[in-house]
Design a protein around this nucleic acid. Structure first.
Lengths: 193, 193
DNA sequence: CGATTTTTTGAATCATATCAACGTACGTGG
DNA sequence: CCACGTACGTTGATATGATTCAAAAAATCG
């Protein structure tokens, strides 16, 4: 029985058995407990993480101490500080498990080797990054012209389970608003008109 | 003499002569006049454009008629509606030349063929998309915690020539503020203290 | 169960948007 | 090449929406 990770790759490209073996050899499974950190700001991001189970978030801290949440990663998603991973520079993101989670880790060396030796893996990675880019661009476009209410509703539509899994203040930090404002948004939406 | 485009690829990966020939065979050079459109919302984005000379912008229109500028692309940059290009769905972006420009176009078919037959091209594209993703993420992170003044200053620092090449209202549309606000920002920054 | 964190609610404040008017620059046709 | 018209930038007054600060209510954790 292959890991979810291999299955996931196989939905995008058709791996040969040899390729599956090669990838298997270069991945590491890791469990991480709720509230524990996969990555802390200032450290180098040595691995990309594929989420097999659980939920994590990446965020940055500002002067005032506020958090801005960059991404929630649930089952089937990747999370990492990509710039740090690729460049070896210190990470600017913190990545924390919101729930007990199971990850598949890939080191830079393993990633480089697979990109070179496994054409299907390179094709897969190109797809992953392209999709991530398009998703980020969509999120970006929504900001200037949607009201806060609409942005919250969009988020709910895209990730209906999110409010059950993460505290409200984190959703506020993701939307870039204060928890007080989000509370008022929810109140408004409950009693429309 | 190779085109700027080939030179650009060669700074990232080392192409063989055969690869150069193959790429040359699949690209099209195109000039586009100021104020003309490379792509209009609703049309399918049939080409990616590499800017050899000039300056373009991609933007979306909102209900109220306001524009939100997604990207300025100058010499050495790519511009396209990537989602439309890859999926064949109608584009959500308009792409307009701000100056008379010279582009290198690549069709989807040519892109697919090169990804398959030219490993260095795939490596190159992975780098391009990865860099675009990281750049977008950086821009995204700046929004919630920087003031409008800081965001304008950052933009100037990154692209000092931009104000000389694009009207102020477009810079406002890029920053997601009104032209009036940008005018006041500039006034504030001129008379510090 | 008590302690701590999270969410809600209210009031005051601040930044940007909006509306409107004016001056300036620009390009376009005569 | 000039003059006119249109678009662009600036400035002011007002409105709007989110933030901030404060405190109470609710939920969560050990």
């Amino acid at each position: 029985m292959n890991s979810t990770y291999i299955q996931h790759i196989n939905t995008k490209v058709k791996l040969t058995e040899a390729e599956v073996d090669l990838i298997q050899k270069h991945i590491v499974h890791k469990k991480i407990r709720k509230k524990h950190y996969f990555l802390q700001e200032g450290d180098v991001c040595k691995y990309t993480a594929f989420v097999e189970k659980g939920l994590l978030r990446s965020y940055t801290l500002h002067n005032n101490g506020n958090e801005h949440i960059v991404q929630f990663a649930m089952e089937g998603w990747f999370i990492a500080d990509l710039y740090s991973f690729l460049s070896g520079e210190p990470a600017v993101y913190n990545i924390e498990a919101i729930e007990d989670s199971e990850l598949v880790l890939m080191s830079k060396a393993a990633n480089d080797l697979l990109l070179q030796q496994c054409p299907n893996y390179q094709t897969f990675m190109l797809q992953v990054i392209t999709n991530a880019y398009i998703a980020l661009q969509k999120r970006f476009n929504a900001i200037p012209h949607l009201t806060v209410d609409e942005r919250y509703q969009n988020l709910l539509q895209q990730y209906p389970t999110l409010p059950k899994r993460v505290p409200q203040r984190m959703i506020a930090a993701y939307l870039g608003i204060t928890p007080e404002t989000l509370s008022r948004v929810r109140k408004r939406l409950q009693q429309p008109k």
